[in-house]
Design a protein around this nucleic acid. Structure first.
Length: 508
RNA sequence: GGUGCUUUGGCCGAGAGGUUAGGCACAGGUCUGCAAAACCUGCUAGAGCGGUUCAAUUCCGCUAGGCACCUCCA
């Protein structure tokens, strides 16, 4: 099994990945709060951790991937009038909160499906784990790290900090935290500004509420991930992922809660993806500069010059390292679109030239192909590509470098197609394996142009007829007719390219 | 104000103390009835000022700009 190195935010260093249980990976990722459509920013962790779990599987691990749905909590203000984001939206639209949750959960699933982000092994909801969260609050109280105040329970950060250290993940001291804390209204219930709620009393107008030993209320913002992570992955598990913006306070609080409830930090590797920016600024709800995924897919947004397909978005994300920011622009997405098209065309040619079949995996299905320890090919260039791809992926999941090697493979395939290069059977097999396992497997790309289905088969048959007519015209040097056919097809969105062995066609 | 990150060629984006990132765009060429595609070649950058070093875009310091978190946020 190949060794994988991954950057652990806890140490800020690339560390050799060592699983808690040999051969198994437990992975928890913070999912969305379902009160609106997912935007481009949400696509990043979706794709990033999808690739990571697929990489783990390809390296031979069994993976349990937990990604939650936040459908409760998350106060809009850290204040007494604190109204659940979901509850607020529900009131505006005169809907049941769970109706909003259901709508946007389904829409989120659909967006992820289009991005070919596999469904997680378990997708727990905060609202389905109220009992467990109440138990966790009790444990924190018993441990002496929380206090009750006016029906709410707050985590006593100062007390915790005295026994353990608060701020180990974000690298800030309690003083730093205090320094930046602004005077917010309605913090009277708290002993200190940096204390955070683990259980919040529900005001009369608050819709989402559950009975508890401390009255009616709802769980605090950070509790669900601690509780559900432990429930499904155990006291200690391997990977916890999420956006960098969640590092503080969300993940910091999670660690504190974990220590308070189970006596251990619980997570071995904290992995954080960076943000997607627009004009150099973070794309986010509060800034109002976000573009939702349905808008991207349809092109229906003033900032968009055109629609971008889900795979273009996926490729765009893959072309940057997950820990760096990635700037949105029409130019960048158009570049990604063309780059992707080039890879997909080469893939098609590869399967034809190698006499192999493209992988046919249903959505959410995984290949059981495991990466061999050494390259099976003999051709020096192919070998270099193969090794480059795996070295890059095992070095903190460096997808841009891995992709650059894939482009080298594209060049080799194209050269071979022009019969300027001859490859051995073993070399072809290696390239096929690389595309199967990495391009389609780990990267999770798919060819959007070749939708199979009855209609497509009909079109294909039709096109063969049309192209035969055109070939006949060409043979008779009737350029007017052959060009007329090509122009007419172009107008319909079908490109015809004349090759050495006859014409090819593609849908634009 | 506190903490941390960042500044790369026309654009997006990597790695590495000395050796080609890659993609897109652009220019020239090959092929082709033409076109497209493909292939070849070119474009060789790293905010500014200092320092370390035989050698720095890569390490260190300062200056300037940008960003993120500190409040819900992927």
């Amino acid at each position: 099994m190949k060794a994988l190195y991954i950057t652990n935010t806890l140490t800020r260093q690339k560390e050799l990945f060592k699983p808690v249980n040999p051969g198994h990976v437990g992975m928890y990722v913070c999912g969305p709060t379902v009160y609106g459509d997912a935007h481009l920013g949400h696509a990043r962790p979706g794709v990033t951790y999808d690739v990571l779990q697929k990489l783990f599987r390809h390296l031979g691990y069994k993976v349990r991937y937990v990604r939650n749905i936040t459908d409760v909590g998350h106060l809009e203000h850290d204040a007494d009038e604190g109204e659940d984001k979901i509850a607020k939206k529900a009131r505006l639209e005169q809907l049941e909160p769970m109706e909003v949750v259901q709508t946007y959960t389904l829409r989120y699933h659909e967006a992820m499906r289009m991005l070919n982000v596999a469904p997680p092994s378990i997708e727990p909801r905060a609202s389905g784990h109220i009992v467990e969260q109440i138990e966790a609050v009790k444990k924190i109280l018993e441990a002496g790290y929380a206090y009750e105040s006016n029906g709410s329970i707050y985590f006593d950060v100062q007390k915790y900090n005295a026994d353990h250290k608060y701020g180990i993940l974000s690298g800030r001291s309690l003083d730093d935290t205090l320094e930046g804390t602004r005077a917010l209204d309605g913090q009277d219930d708290k002993r200190a500004p940096y204390d955070f709620a683990v259980w919040k009393k529900a005001e009369p107008q608050h819709i989402m509420r559950w009975p508890s030993p401390w009255g009616e209320g709802f769980p605090g913002w950070h509790l669900e991930c601690s509780v559900m992570g432990e429930k499904y992955l155990g006291h200690e598990f391997d990977i916890h992922g999420g956006g960098m913006d969640l590092m503080f306070p969300h993940h910091e609080c999670e660690i504190a809660q974990n220590v308070a409830t189970r006596g251990t930090q619980g997570v071995h590797y904290w992995v954080h993806n960076n943000m997607i920016t627009i004009n150099g600024q973070k794309m986010g709800k509060s800034l109002g500069n976000f573009i939702t995924l349905p808008e991207l897919f349809s092109g229906n947004h003033p900032k968009l010059e055109q629609a971008y397909s889900p795979m273009t978005i996926r490729f765009f994300i893959l072309q940057a390292h997950y820990r760096g920011t990635l700037d949105f622009s029409n130019e960048a997405l158009q570049a990604a679109e063309k780059g992707l098209r080039r890879v997909m065309q080469a893939a098609k040619d590869l399967y034809t030239l190698a006499g192999a079949k493209a992988p046919q995996l249903a959505y959410g299905e995984y290949s059981d192909s495991v990466a061999p320890d050494s390259c099976p090919a003999t051709n020096a260039d192919v070998k270099k590509i193969w090794e480059g791809v795996y070295d890059a992926l095992c070095d903190d999941m460096n997808t841009p470098i891995a992709l650059s090697h894939i482009f080298d493979a594209v060049r080799i395939i194209n050269t071979a197609k022009e019969k300027k290069l001859t490859l051995s059977k073993g070399d072809w097999d290696t390239l096929v394996q690389l595309f199967n396992d990495i391009v389609f497997g780990v990267f999770g790309l798919k060819d959007e142009g070749s939708e199979s289905g009855k209609a497509m088969k009909t079109i294909d048959g039709l096109m063969q007829m049309v192209l035969e007519e055109r070939a006949a015209a060409k043979a008779a040097k009737d350029w007017a007719t052959s060009d007329k056919i090509r122009d007419a097809l172009k107008a319909l969105g079908i490109s015809v390219k004349d090759g050495k062995d006859g014409a090819e066609w593609t849908l634009d």
